[in-house]
């Protein structure tokens, strides 16, 4: 039982850590490298591309990965309990 909770918690913390690192470094990047605040790709400034568009697919993919792994942990647990 506690191993189930522990592996779920490890997964949760990994997702939070990963997203936190990615999202948290964005303001820091703008802060430390002012050139990135105005840098433009195809006429669109980088901050608007990142915050307006790119973050969403990243968050969605993180959610999909999390659900797949969380379900796998639960399936293994269910099979393990069933064998006993």
């Amino acid at each position: 039982m506690s191993s189930l909770i522990q592996s779920q918690l490890r997964l949760t913390l990994a997702v939070i850590g990963g997203t936190g690192l990615i999202l948290g470094s964005i303001p820091l990047l703008f802060w430390l490298a002012p050139a990135t605040r105005t840098f433009a790709i195809f006429g669109l400034p980088l901050p608007w591309i990142i915050l307006g568009i790119v973050v969403y697919p990243v968050v969605y993919v993180a959610a999909r990965i999390y659900v797949r792994k969380a379900e796998r942990i639960e399936t293994e647990f269910t099979e393990f309990v069933g064998r006993q």
Binding site: T12, I16, L23, V55
Partner: peptide, 14 residues
Amino acid sequence: SVGYTVGYLMLLVL
């Protein structure tokens, strides 16, 4: 809008 969305990711994993 980023935060309003990521809130659901945190809700999901926690």
